[in-house]
Design a protein around this nucleic acid. Structure first.
Length: 486
RNA sequence: GGCGGCGUACCCAAGCGGCAAGGGGGAGGUCUGCAAAACCUUUAUGCGCCGGUUCAAAUCCGGCCGCCGCCUCCA
């Protein structure tokens, strides 16, 4: 499989990936706060880490993948007030919505999906340790972490407290010893949800949950910690401060951060209001289109999002499905009648090298864009081979093996997973051409009869009328196929 | 102000020291009743600009221009 190299935010370099423990990989990724529908920025993070975990498994690592839900937070409380229901109903509702989006996007459920509110006891325990060790202090608002006490503060985000103080944009909270001290425990105000603690009734600060849940499920030190690049500071920096101070151990070995989705070059975000929900986009596009679009750019680079770009992605998928269909036809009609030829040998060499090239691309810091290109290279070579109408005893096995390899590698990215038939039906759904599959079939039959009578005029009229609706016909030896034009 | 990143063809996008991947689009061709699909040829002597290092630079170094992110909640 070769060496896997991963860009580590901590070192700022690509490093050889060596798990802490033999073949086992433990990874923790920061999930979502369940207070609203997810947008495509969330989709990117989910798809990227889903593909990374799939690739690690493809490499035969024994992966434990943990992704949390933040189910208590100011935004949830505010949302609950707006919607006139309890905070936990809001959290439950948007967790369900999240699962619906992830299922459609082909994002596998992680091994563990802890919720913050299920780990309050662990948080109280860790906060107590931090208090005892002198890293935390109490104010009238709650308990704070004193960042100045932690030597390594800023090691991940490469910044030091002094220079940050100079650029601080927020008014100083006089109750805190430093502007950058952050809440471990917030005392609850009237009407807010609360849990009992040695520091009074309250709720956890945001950062403590990840330190506690990763500890509970993965141990003091684990292999990979991931999330969006906007979490580097302060969230991940604070997690490091908490965990290292509490355990005295290294927290995570490799830090992986995905880049943002932008709209008109600006980061997509709730606060700017320039976002598209996953829900809305999937009304217009097959989920694999969004998934391939997200994986066609390296995970650390920004992606400029637009419907136009998604439209450009559709033909890529279509090309693969057309080849899968063609291969199905080839295998069905296969009759062996020639001795092996040079064509078989030539294609055999190309086909045999595909998987290695795919792996090589993925080994280079999960370069999915380059990996996808190896699939397209192989698709072209396969088409070229099929054009030669191979019929030797070897050709059938060769074609079957190639398609199997393509599907296996595409499975790592979880794309090209449908049958061609389902792909065309999905496009019909997404493009809404105003005609049903059975209507199309009926017109194809009418045209078949016309063609039999060599009534080319009528045949062409039927095709033209379908074409104007966005449906293309392809005449094959054994009949006519339809497809949605992309 | 501090820190980080980006600028590759008409569009998207890999490459990060040794002849500029891949997808879309355009042009021409093969195939076809005509098409479509597929395949072939073609489409950047060029990688924001200017210098430097090197036998060799899109890749390394320096300067400049433009854009973005983080420093506040954020995937």
């Amino acid at each position: 499989m070769g060496l896997l190299r991963i860009y580590n935010t901590m070192s700022g370099k690509k490093e050889e990936f060596i798990p802490l423990e033999n073949n086992r990989v433990r990874m923790y990724v920061c999930g979502v706060t369940v207070y609203d529908l997810c947008h495509v920025g969330h989709a990117r993070s989910a798809v990227v880490f889903d593909s990374i975990s799939r690739y690690l498994r493809f490499r035969n690592y024994d992966v434990t993948f943990v992704k949390n839900f933040t189910d208590i937070d100011d935004k949830i409380i505010n949302r609950a007030a707006e919607e006139g229901r309890s905070w936990d109903e809001v959290a439950k509702h948007y967790t369900d919505e999240y699962y619906e989006d992830m299922t459609r996007l082909g994002v596998a459920t992680p091994d563990k999906e802890p919720r913050a509110t299920a780990h309050i006891a662990g948080m109280i325990d860790m906060i107590g340790k931090l208090m005892d060790a002198g890293y935390a202090y109490e104010t009238e608002d709650g308990v704070y972490y004193e960042v100045g006490k932690f030597d390594g503060y800023g090691m991940l985000s490469k910044r030091d407290l002094d220079s940050m103080e100079a650029g601080a944009r927020v008014e100083i909270d006089l109750k805190k010893r430093s502007h950058f001290d952050f809440a471990l425990w917030k005392r609850s105000k009237e009407g807010e949800p609360w849990w009992d603690s040695p520091w009074g009734n309250g709720r956890p600060g945001w950062h403590i949950e990840c330190s506690v849940m990763s500890l509970a499920h993965l141990g003091e030190t684990f292999d990979i910690h991931g999330g969006g690049a906007d979490l580097i500071f302060p969230h991940h920096e604070n997690e490091i401060a908490q965990s290292c101070a509490a355990t005295g151990k290294t927290f995570a070995k490799y830090w992986i951060h995905n880049g943002f989705i932008t709209i008109d070059k600006e980061k997509m975000s709730k606060s700017l209001g320039n976002f598209f929900t996953i829900r809305d986009i999937l009304k217009e596009f097959d989920p694999e289109v969004l998934r391939l679009f997200l994986l066609s750019t390296h995970y650390r680079s920004p992606i400029e999002f637009s419907r136009e770009s998604l439209r450009q992605t559709e033909p890529s998928l279509d090309r693969v499905y057309a080849t899968v269909l063609r291969t199905d036809d080839f295998l069905k009609a296969f009759k062996e009648n020639l001795a092996p030829s040079k064509d078989d040998a030539d294609f055999g060499i190309i086909a045999a090298s595909f998987k290695d090239k795919f792996i090589e691309a993925m080994n280079d810091d999960f370069n999915t864009a380059a990996a996808v290109a190896t699939i397209f290279d192989t698709i072209r070579e396969l088409n070229r081979y099929l054009d030669k109408k191979p019929s030797s005893q070897e050709s059938k096995a060769l074609v079957e093996k190639t398609i199997a390899d393509i599907k296996e590698c595409a499975g790592v990215l979880n794309i090209f997973t449908k049958t061609p038939q389902d792909w065309y039906l999905s496009l019909l759904e997404a493009h809404k051409p105003g005609i049903t599959a059975s209507d199309i079939e009926a017109l194809i039959e009418k045209r078949r009869q016309a063609r039999q009578l060599k009534d080319w005029k009528l045949a062409d009229e039927i095709r033209k009328s379908l074409d104007s609706k966005g449906i293309a016909l392809e005449d094959k030896e054994d009949g006519t196929r339809w497809k949605v034009k992309v």
